[in-house]
């Protein structure tokens, strides 16, 4: 028997299957994770377009007569437009304040060696780890002292200051990745530290700023406790606090209305994420250094 004839060819199907099996399992696992993630969201959307009676008959059933009535009721009943406007103001202004306050310290911590840098970091991390509840009473006192209790400005200030430590860490991390040679080149060209910050670092830190701003925006949009404690007037409630009304009657279980409210409240976040994503994923330093 020749040597070539002695070579046993394995069955190609089995070989392919053997190599494909791990991929199949990985795909199935990913699909399972996706289902766990998307399931509640899908249930929320489905519930929001059902009459409540239909939901009570079968919470997981596909809607028989889809309706947008829950949306109309929530929008009109809760004055949802005002709630959304308030949330938008708190999230937009609070995040802008947090990022604005964080920019200069982040630049300083990324580029210089200020005395006690380690302690500044420890302080920032401590600020991040403190539970929200522990600062409620001091902040309440401060807001009353400043006559800012139950005001939009008061809540914006709280969100801005509370968000600042995380923004410093995010922006510092990002600024550290900006090549040092770019800064040195600006220095050689005669730029002062302030000009380097405004003309070089800031434009290059835009993706970092967008990331930080977006994360902070989402955090404020979802925030409940500060708004509940520091606001009393319905006219300045954000969505999270305003929607409490739907839960005020413990004897009626209307699930479709909160679902519709939740769907509406997620739309700005989705839009923001889509807008921010393109900016975040654009390679900002390409071409600045090396080939």
């Amino acid at each position: 028997m020749s040597e070539a004839a002695a070579i046993v060819r394995p069955n190609r199907t089995w070989v392919r299957l053997r190599y494909a099996t791990p991929k199949i399992f990985a795909t199935l696992f990913a699909l399972l994770l996706a289902a766990v993630w998307i399931g509640p969201l899908a249930l929320m959307v489905i519930t929001s377009i059902k009459p409540n009676s239909e939901f009570l008959n079968g919470p997981f059933a596909w809607p028989i007569a889809p309706t947008l009535e829950p949306y109309r009721k929530v929008w009109q009943g809760l004055n949802f437009g005002v709630l959304m406007e308030n949330s938008l103001i708190y999230a937009a202004a609070g995040s802008a304040l947090a990022v604005g306050l964080a920019l200069v310290p982040a630049f300083a911590l990324s580029r210089f060696e200020p005395p006690g840098k380690r302690y500044i970091f420890a302080l920032l991390l401590t600020g991040l780890m403190l539970p929200q509840q522990t600062v409620l009473i001091p902040l309440y006192d401060i807001l009353r002292w400043l006559h800012l209790f139950d005001t939009r400005i008061g809540l914006i200030l709280v969100h801005g200051v509370y968000g600042m430590p995380s923004q410093i860490l995010i922006l510092r991390g990002f600024m550290t990745t900006i090549p040092r040679d770019i800064e040195k080149a600006a220095q050689i060209e005669g730029a002062t530290d302030f000009q380097i910050f405004t003309k070089v670092i800031l434009p290059l830190a835009i993706p970092g700023i967008v990331v930080g701003y977006t994360l902070n925006f989402i955090a404020i949009w979802k925030e409940f406790v500060f708004a509940l404690v520091f606001l009393n007037s319905e006219a300045i409630f954000p969505v999270t606090v305003g929607m409490l009304k739907l839960n005020s009657d413990r004897y009626i279980s209307a699930f479709n209305l909160p679902s519709a409210g939740l769907v509406i409240s997620q739309i700005p976040i989705a839009i923001l994420f889509i807008l921010a994503y393109r900016r975040i994923s654009s390679g900002n330093f390409v071409g600045s250094v090396k080939g």
Binding site: D181, I182, I188, N284, G287, S288, V289, K290
Partner: peptide
């Protein structure tokens, strides 16, 4: 003095024109 860096150190957010003009603008 003027310096050329190993990494070129061009300002990635500025056009070639603005890169060259950077020092003069300052």
């Amino acid at each position: 003095i003027a310096m050329v860096f190993q990494s070129y150190a061009l300002f990635p957010h500025l056009s070639v024109f603005e890169n060259i003009a950077f020092g003069m603008r300052i």
